[in-house]
Nucleic acid binder design. Structure first.
Lengths: 281, 281
DNA sequence: CTGCACTATGAATCGCTAA
DNA sequence: GTTAGCGATTCATAGTGCA
């Protein structure tokens, strides 16, 4: 009776999540999703208005709270738009409402888009960032920091460059096994540091056949940070399947849900392409 | 009876702002400030607790709303901290309360810091960004976009590189077919581009004689965007004077207020140094 | 004067101990 | 119970001292 892993389901996630025989309580390691934003995506989804958004989302998040493991995490990618020259407030209200529902609001990560949609208006510029809100059920979550370490900052490279100015500068650009990293190791004892809460990823190019809400690198980063191999990741608004693709390529199990059959088809095609392109080792 | 321009006053801004003979209604072009955050700066200021913060701030913002011109702007630099593994919510509540008070919330800019305070904890990383909230009284504000077009090769390119180095480093070194390099090529052709709502500036270093909450470049950017020459900029929590320095160097008038005499002294010293260093042309 | 090693510290946060 | 204080931890800068 339990749902199968590694599949995309065409269903209303609210209904599907409600059934404890389909989704047992405390069974999911990571929920990662980018729901339809208020008054957006009107062409394909039944648009949720700003006014109804919080109430609508709480009916879903109530079930998410039930199915999430105690050491699991919930990442919500969302950004309020501008209407009549003002930012909408429903996302702020949603955060407060989710806390009231029992969620802990651990952090607000920011996805900074290196190539945001162009535009320039009377009172604002183009929107270069989105919120990635991190919620959980307890303070004791899985947090695999070592999986997302980043190369050491520019400052050390500059110092290193000063060091080698009179010698062989080209070594700086050679591959990771040679000169640079080894010498930095010797010098400082480490070559990577913890990241911060600002994530910079380019949006994937819109000319691709399947435009996605976010680039694969974004869910991949959170999946690496918050789960280990064979853990279960779900996305109740999977759209074109990006979360599933990230999970699959990192050897995590996934369940994707989308209300539109069209999206399920697209997601399955992308997953199939991925299998063909990169057979697992 | 009206207050003198281009001075820093040692006073409680709430009291000083209340007097309409000192600060006439509809007389200020730009309010730009970074108030003490809740539960911070305990060494120097009377710390405002999270619980009291919104109420405390509303008494001040009520007067700010009165003195601001109809086409003026209010920029509020703030960021909530983490306590007991959760982000505090008082900033979200403040935004909602300011709207209720009559402010329009036009936009949320982000100041991304390249050198945030270090740290790495059980459930989160170090904090690499702060909010710069843009409020106004009407939808018809002065917005001098042409003043903040970004010449290539200055902070924009640095910003781009910083963003890339965090998580996308490989693309920086990849060939010209990659998204990043192609985009830089496109940019290079133009002399200037419109910015987006993400601002990247390093914090000013801690070890200088006068450490400041934010770098001069941050208020300077908003002053250029939202005022013209000889306009009046005020900062009711001026601290070490950074806003005044930015205003002065851009030939805007300023009024600074700080409750600590110590800060007024520091601000005046910095303003004097600036005069000596860069005589106006 | 330059280059390099070393040190200090900032809008930080947590866990522990002492009152 | 509740709060206040201290050390440990973390990274990017600037300042200091020495060869």
């Amino acid at each position: 009776m339990k749902i199968d892993y590694n599949k995309i389901y065409a269903a209303d996630c609210a209904s599907l999540l409600k059934d404890p025989k389909v989704f047992p309580s405390n069974s999911i390691d990571l929920i990662l999703t980018s729901p339809p934003y208020a008054d957006k995506r009107g062409k394909n989804y039944n648009t949720i208005t700003e006014k109804d958004y919080v109430e609508w989302f709480l009916t879903i998040s109530k079930e998410l709270l039930r199915v999430l493991k105690k050491d699991g995490s919930f990442i919500l990618n969302i950004k309020e738009g501008i209407k009549n020259h003002e930012r909408k407030t429903y996302v702020l209200e949603l955060i407060l409402a989710l806390k009231k529902q029992g969620w802990l609001w651990l952090e607000e990560y920011h996805w900074v888009k290196t190539n945001s949609f162009p535009g320039s208006w009377q009172t604002h510029f183009r929107d270069g960032w989105e919120r990635c809100l991190h919620f959980s059920k307890t303070k004791d979550i899985n947090f695999y920091k070592e999986n997302v370490k980043v190369p050491i900052g520019e400052w050390s490279i500059k110092r290193f460059e000063n060091k080698i100015t009179n010698h062989d500068k080209s070594r700086h650009y050679s591959n990771t096994n040679s000169g640079f990293s080894r010498q930095v190791d010797n010098w400082s004892g480490k070559n990577s540091v913890d990241p911060d809460n600002v994530l910079a990823f380019a949006t994937e190019s819109s000319n691709k056949r399947h435009s996605a809400a976010f680039p694969v690198a974004l869910p991949a980063w959170f999946i690496k940070l918050l789960t280990k191999k064979n853990d279960l990741v779900i996305d109740p608004f999977i759209g074109s399947g990006t979360t599933a693709i990230a999970a699959k390529s990192l050897n995590r199990s996934y369940i994707g849900i989308d209300i539109l059959k069209k999206n399920v088809k697209i997601a399955n095609e992308r997953l199939k392409e991925q299998t063909l392109q990169s057979p697992s080792p």
